[in-house]
């Protein structure tokens, strides 16, 4: 089913998507919020620019955006996939618990905050370009990969990457330490793990990039140095 979104209020647009049981293509999307909220078992293709909170609570649905996305994409996402042929705004993948987000271009500030793994659910975010500050803050599980394509000589992530991280891992292509890396984050020079390589391969497939160069490149792997960071912080009173 194809829905032409121009001039539609988000409530009407989301209602139309909800009522249509099958796959949906939205043409001419222009800032409508909350598209694909808690979507399950269906495909949603968005041509244009969706508004904030695209794919919040996504529960197994697959969303492809041909364009940029705004803030809070994939907020509290549980399963499924969001694929953005463009760049993403701030707070992408907030508190995500499962599923995968592929961003072809850059991601804004506070991407992948408090993502967490659980049993078979392991959230993954792959960013083709650069990521802003506070990437992976409170990271509690899952994997974030930043490829830094088109970043030139500058750092591929902003300040304070992994602040409060207590689980999971972050791969940054290249060998130079990101600026203002917090003390509790451990960094090691390495190559991609099999799992990370599979994600990069998937990212390349989705956006038509050559995987070879990215797979063979050196990476920096960030992990937390403690899963219980506050264990010794308190005294009973």
């Amino acid at each position: 089913m194809v829905i032409h979104a121009a001039g539609m209020h988000y409530k009407a647009l989301n209602d139309a998507v909800r009522r249509c049981g099958g796959d949906v293509v939205i043409e001419g999307c222009i800032g409508q919020r909350y598209l694909g909220t808690a979507l399950e078992g269906r495909r949603l293709t968005v041509n244009g620019t969706p508004g904030n909170a695209l794919g919040a609570y996504l529960n197994g649905g697959v969303i492809r955006v041909n364009g940029n996305v705004q803030e809070a994409t994939g907020d509290t996402m549980n399963a499924g996939e969001i694929c953005v042929a463009g760049s993403a705004g701030d707070a992408t993948g907030y508190a995500m618990r499962g599923g995968r987000i592929f961003i072809e271009g850059d991601a804004g500030y506070r991407c992948g905050i408090h993502i967490k793994a659980y049993q078979d659910n392991k959230p993954a975010i792959v960013i083709g370009g650069r990521a802003g500050s506070f990437l992976g803050e409170y990271h509690a599980g899952g994997i974030i990969i930043v490829l830094g394509l088109g970043a030139g000589d500058g750092p591929i992530v902003g300040n304070f990457c992994g602040t409060g991280m207590h689980g999971g891992e972050i791969y940054l292509r290249g060998t130079s330490l990101p600026p203002r890396l917090p003390a509790q984050v451990r960094a090691e020079r390495t190559t991609l793990s099999d799992e990370a390589a599979a994600l990069v391969t998937d990212w390349c497939e989705r956006f038509g990039h050559d995987a070879r160069e990215l797979l063979d490149a050196p990476y920096l792997r960030l992990t937390p140095d403690d899963h219980n960071p506050y264990r010794r912080m308190y005294v009973a009173n």
Binding site: I113, K116, Y138, G167, H227, P229, Y230
Partner: peptide, 17 residues
């Protein structure tokens, strides 16, 4: 809670969104 066993469950002070 849908989190790993034995790992601290940290609620950030603000909602960062």
């Amino acid at each position: 809670r849908m989190i790993p066993q034995g790992s601290d469950a940290i609620s950030p002070a603000p909602h960062h969104d």
